[in-house]
Design a protein around this nucleic acid. Structure first.
Length: 955
DNA sequence: ATGTCGCATGGTA
DNA sequence: TTACCATGCGACA
């Protein structure tokens, strides 16, 4: 009875071809026909159907011409039995009312089966009916009602209902508890042992031949002969399904066909409503529908049907095709325009919350790709999932992180279960047929597991993949082999765009919703397949606008890599220059690896790069350049400027107040207060600016020239990083920018010339001779010297401590105070007031202890006769006295003395508050300031201040 | 110094 | 809040 053969309304027979009855003179209305008319049923079949109320209750069903499906296997259903049963039912109710009519005009009525438990006939050939039964492990099916009774039975339906139905069917299943559904869902996937074909441990013949395993989307032509659904029908269908299936009508050209074997309920997709024999009820929330017959993937109709694409589980792998119904390609449904329907592939999933495979893993393969994958076989391809390669995936580590859902047995058991972290080797074919063997394994992670494929590097390289590209894992049926396809990021499918850039919060394309509501847009959508590609080139302003993109963190990272690379093409130094501490926050000081870092509770703020200095009265100021007039403006040091700052945003310039014609970029806030003006003259001369600019922004020759012209400035600059850089440059030819890069500390600012910032990164930069007296070398030497002094003192203290210990051996020794542990080499001469810290802070207090012989290293330096600027003073400290460091010490001493003599003309800094120290200490402290611009061993507050003082210059 | 392995961490949905 | 997962990182070879 489910096979409804369209017939002329003038026919006297009941429209139900299985009925054999003659319709009466007043036939009952049945479902809506493609012509827009309603099927005329006999009194019995159409009983109680003709009333408007009844009709409305079936509106979705009636108005929804469905895509046709074929059952790929050759399961012949005992329709006669079913007819009898239906007839029995009909004797009580209208068959149509009972929803036992399949809405599809099944020409061949394939797919009818009987429940193994109750014998109820169920059409298994369409998506909707897939919710009405479940496959049984031993074969056969069971209606949903019977399944409820055996709810703990695992479902044989790994694929959820691909399209949810807001229908009477749903209501009928509403009483099924969520818990039950959950349980069903949890059992959704077929246990791995039931799907051995993937690893060729069982032939296809082992499978249950009577299981309607593969349901394919057949072309409308196939179902309807050469007829096609009139546009009106399609429209009606979409009207009915509006709000149900936002994505399902996303269509592209045939070659852009995307596979989709299912949709979440909230996608509410629907392509085929098959109201067959629904005695059970679905939960209203179709998302909880755990069952689903294989939702057909779209497949290529090219290559004479050699490519079959299914969404079935291996267990449901169809037997070798035979017979006209089961052979040939899986046809994708065509819309009225004849274009191939495209869907975002969703592998089977139980659509239940966390058991659901994230949309980003849904396989979206073009048939071209599948054609690529299909090789030359007649295999059916089952896209499983895809993974957009992260940097880690594509990196040298060779580990491809697998989605847990795809890796674990349930519910997305694409890979064999592994219980040991070592996992199993997996053979995966690439599109060329080459076999790769990856280690499928996991490691524990947060009470969970993290699954990876190891050893993918050769494959990745072979495919020339990189981060952002996508690999697709499919299964080749009936061989059951895993196939790995790929898609370059540059050739991302439109659905990728749809899913990754157009996703709204719920992960579904708004396109789909719009398009669903307007079927006429289908053709647009079809084209959009290519348009979307073009849109990709635009780097999708949409994606940036969308706050909640479907992109994961991975994708965001990728996006940065791929799209914002240019925008991020700034150096670390520049980035540091952009960082500003959050306003009104005092940083805490953290010493890491001997280096001092300012740590803020809040993240640093990206601000406009400015130049910090002090004015002639010793007040900290900063200079900022107007974005409009390019003039430099003096601002308080505490000012935090936006990245785009103009004179009009300058409320600190009362003398340069509102200039009406320069308010282009003024916001309301700044208008309300004092506002600067671009018309105001710059307070900074070009030469002064030249001096202010950090070396990276200033031509060295100009700087030197400027220095010559202004001895005062050169004094300020020479004591800073400029001098260090120049010293490095002075070694010979100018170094490329990369060679000049230093390992500046995170809070480095222009002008900071602490030893951390002035030394080139490890392995970079020229090697300095022992006799070199450049600023960097002198700094290193001086630090070394102070280290030695400190070490001596430490040792003597330790000896004294040991003596005390011997006198009081029973008393536990408190840990040394932090000031002692973290004392900087230069802090020793300074006060040990506990606030000592510096960017150079080292741990020689510990590392330099003599009682740690492991730390004594040979001084055999690979750079004999040279000074490695990358050498760490604390390491130097560890030099063995027996080594040739003695000469080095002497050299250091000589250089230091020479340097001190050179600096003897320098006056004490006004901000030098290191009173109370010995003269030597004071000199050293000053010495540090002169050389590094940062008071080593001082608190960060004073250091910052004095840093600015060091930068002080008469502007 | 470099690569690998195993796990931990933290960002994100 | 939790789970996932991209990536960092220490240990080790």
């Amino acid at each position: 009875m489910a096979t409804v053969v369209p017939s002329s309304s003038s026919s006297k027979a009941c429209y139900n071809s299985d009925c054999k009855e003659l319709k009466s003179d007043r036939p009952k209305k049945g479902w809506r026909l493609r012509t827009g008319e309603f099927a005329e049923l006999c009194d019995r079949c159409g009983m109680e159907v003709g009333s408007p109320t009844s009709a409305s209750s079936f509106s979705i069903l009636n108005k929804t011409p469905k895509r046709g499906f074929k059952v790929k296997n050759n399961l012949q259903n005992d329709i006669s039995i079913f007819r009898k049963k239906v007839d029995n039912v009909i004797s009580h109710n209208s068959a149509f009312e009972e929803g036992r009519f399949c809405e599809i005009f099944h020409l061949n009525a394939s797919g009818w089966r009987t429940c193994e438990t109750c014998g109820k006939g169920i059409h298994c050939g369409c998506i909707v009916s897939s919710t009405a039964f479940m496959l049984l492990d031993p074969g056969g099916i069971e209606c949903i009602a019977c399944a409820r009774k055996n709810i703990i039975l695992p479902s044989n339906l790994p694929w959820p209902p691909s399209f949810s139905i807001q229908s009477r069917l749903t209501e009928r299943l509403r009483d099924l508890s969520g818990k039950n559904w959950s349980q069903l869902a949890g059992s959704g996937p077929v246990p791995w042992k039931q799907a051995p074909s993937l690893f060729n441990t069982a032939s296809s013949s082992d499978r249950h031949s009577d299981v309607p395993s593969v349901v394919e989307i057949s072309s409308v032509e196939h179902i309807y002969g050469n007829e096609r659904l009139p546009a009106s029908s399609l429209e009606k269908k979409n009207d009915d399904l509006s709000g149900i299936s936002p994505n399902w009508n996303v269509k592209l050209g045939a070659r852009e066909m995307i596979f989709m074997n299912g949709m979440r309920n909230d996608e509410k997709s629907s392509s085929c409503l098959n109201m067959c024999q629904q005695q059970s009820s679905l939960k209203e929330d179709s998302s909880t529908q755990p069952f689903g017959l294989t939702v057909p993937y779209a497949s290529s109709n090219e290559r004479n049907g050699q490519i079959g694409v299914t969404g079935n589980h291996p267990q449901q792998t169809p037997p070798p095709p035979h017979g006209k119904q089961f052979s040939g390609p899986v046809h994708i449904a065509l819309d009225s325009s004849g274009e191939t329907q495209v869907r975002n592939g969703r592998p089977r999933a139980d659509a239940r919350g966390r058991n659901q495979l994230l949309p980003r893993y849904w396989p979206r393969c073009t048939d071209q790709e599948l054609q690529q994958i299909s090789l030359d076989s007649n295999s059916v391809i089952t896209p499983l999932f895809q993974k957009t390669l992260s940097a880690s995936d594509a990196g040298r580590i060779g580990r491809l992180v697998l989605p847990k859902k795809c890796a674990e047995v349930r519910p997305e058991a694409y890979f064999p279960p592994i219980s040991q972290p070592e996992g199993l080797p997996l053979k995966i074919l690439d599109a060329k047929g080459k076999e790769w063997i990856f280690q499928f394994r996991f490691w524990p992670n947060n009470n969970s597991r993290m699954y990876v494929l190891e050893g993918v590097t050769p494959c990745i390289q072979s495919m020339q993949l990189q981060a952002g590209d996508t690999v697709t894992f499919s299964r080749l049926e009936p061989e059951g082999r895993l196939v790995m396809g790929f898609r370059k990021a540059s050739s991302a499918t439109p659905s990728d765009q749809d899913n990754e850039t157009n996703k709204t919060g719920n992960g579904y394309s708004t396109h789909g919703e719009v398009e669903l509501a307007d079927p006429s847009s289908w053709s647009k959508v079809d084209k959009s397949g290519y348009i979307a590609k073009e849109a990709l080139g635009n780097k999708s302003s949409i994606s940036r606008k969308r706050k909640s993109s479907a992109l994961g963190s991975k994708s965001k990272r990728l996006r940065i890599e791929n799209e914002d690379l240019i925008e991020l093409n700034i150096t670390w130094e520049e980035a540091q220059g952009l960082l500003r501490p959050p306003p009104n926050l005092v940083p805490s000081i953290v010493v890491i690896e001997g280096f001092e870092f300012e740590e803020y509770e809040d993240a640093p703020v990206l601000g406009k790069p400015t130049i910090f200095t002090t004015d002639d009265v010793g007040e900290k100021i900063q200079w900022a350049q107007c974005e409009d007039c390019q003039k430099w403006r003096k601002l308080p040091a505490s000012a935090l400027l936006p990245s785009r700052w103009t004179c009009s945003d300058n409320p600190w310039d009362p003398e340069r107040k509102i200039d009406q014609h320069s308010q282009m970029n003024t916001n309301a806030f700044t208008q309300a207060i004092h506002i600067g003006s671009c018309s105001a003259a710059q307070e900074l001369t070009a030469e002064q600016l030249e001096d202010l600019l950090p070396p990276c922004n200033s031509v060295v020759s100009k700087k030197m020239k400027s220095a010559k012209q202004d001895p005062d400035n050169v004094e300020a600059l020479e004591g800073l990083d400029t001098l260090a850089n120049l010293a490095i440059l002075g070694e010979g030819e100018a170094l490329p920018a990369s060679a000049q890069a230093t390992t500046k500390h995170p809070r480095h600012r222009p002008g900071c010339s602490c030893i951390v910032c002035i030394q080139p990164p490890s392995g970079k930069g020229p090697k300095h001779k022992q006799t070199c007296t450049c600023n960097v070398c002198l700094t290193v030497k001086r630090r070394f010297r102070t280290l030695m002094l400190r070490r001596e003192k430490k040792q003597s203290e330790r000896e004294a401590e040991t003596t005390r210990k011997k006198q009081q051996p029973q008393l536990p020794q408190p840990p040394p105070p932090m000031s002692e542990i973290l004392l900087d080499d230069d802090s020793l001469p300074c006060s040990n007031t506990g606030d000592s810290s510096s960017p150079n802070q080292n741990r020689e207090g510990n590392e330099g202890s003599d009682d740690d012989p492991n730390r004594i290293k040979s001084s055999a330096s690979p750079f004999k006769g040279q000074i490695d600027l990358n050498i760490q003073p604390e390491r130097e400290e560890e030099l063995s006295p027996s080594s040739d460091s003695g000469s080095m010490i002497k050299l250091l001493h000589d250089a230091t003395e020479r340097y001190l003599r050179q600096q003897s003309m320098s006056n004490s800094f006004p901000g030098d508050t290191s009173g109370g120290q010995s003269q030597k200490v004071g000199e050293e402290a000053r010495e540090e300031k002169l050389c590094n611009g940062v008071v080593l061993g001082n608190s960060n507050h004073s250091a910052d201040k004095e840093h600015a003082q060091t930068l002080s210059m008469k502007v």
